[in-house]
Design a binder for these strands. Structure first.
Lengths: 153, 153
DNA sequence: CATGAAAGCCATGGTAA
DNA sequence: TTACCATGGCTTTCATG
């Protein structure tokens, strides 16, 4: 973990908000020269702090407005059972996020689908058919109150 | 909701993976001309399909590697109580995502913190002190199995 | 040693045919 | 769709504190 000064933090903050900002605008915003920003960005990339630049898409606009939180329990805890499930998770594009959890359930996933029927299909034909899965419990989101990709710095 | 042809879908897919791709590379990848890509992107932006371009940051590298899922229950269901809570959520940078939920709890939040102690502080001094909040239940993530910002198209 | 100023190259976005 | 052009951003150099 790299230690960051105030200007590094401001650079990270700006790039998390807008990945298209030019070095000149960035320089003005963070109070450094454009060349200095360039060098700092390179260093932050090399240190693994800054990752990919991605374009965000409006879920409603492409008919993926329904979010479901799905808790999953494994039917055993051997490495291969878990790895098989994690491969399944990686391969399914509708599973946006997945966490291995402490507590009553083994995994928590966020699944995006067009509608309830599509979720039913996902559950019945994909998830619950998977040999690693012992059970699942789903909760539908009523609204997406907040969504951010920016971590506090 | 705009209807998309195959090329639109490929453009969205590419931009979700790499927001820095040039129109020329994009054109080659999706099988259209660069000018055509440019026009389609403009139209997708105007239709609200394509949103911001953001830079992703490695949570571990900046000391925000601990994810906690926090279920929250309101102490009443009037509009102002909910709005006060949602403002709180927006204002706290460590709350990355928040959903209004069906089921036993009213909200589900993902909170990123440096360590367990910081989460304790967040709970005791911020969340549980909030006048809208009746109770909360937290679950720690052991691993971030999958994280994607790309919706299926 | 890192920074800021300056300048050139080149790739890119935008346009016209 | 293809070709072109001008804009401006990226990258390097160099002097400075």
């Amino acid at each position: 973990m790299k230690d960051l000064d105030a200007i590094d933090r401001r650079i990270i903050k700006a790039l998390q908000e807008d990945g298209t900002i030019t070095h000149n605008d960035l320089a003005e915003r963070v109070g450094a020269s454009s060349a200095s920003c360039w060098r700092r960005i390179k260093a932050l990339e090399a240190a693994g702090v800054l990752g990919r630049t991605v374009r965000l898409v409006n879920p409603q606009a492409i008919g993926r407005g329904v979010n479901v939180m799905c808790n999953v329990r494994m039917n055993s805890y051997t490495l291969d059972v878990r790895q098989a499930f994690e491969k399944f998770v990686r391969d399914r594009a509708e599973i946006i996020e997945c966490f291995s959890m402490s507590g009553d359930w083994d995994y928590l996933m966020r699944v995006v689908v067009p509608d309830v029927e599509a979720y039913n299909h996902f559950m019945m034909h994909s998830l619950l058919n998977h040999p690693s899965v012992a059970g699942a419990s789903s909760h539908f989101a009523l609204a997406h109150t907040k969504y951010s990709t920016a971590l506090p710095v």
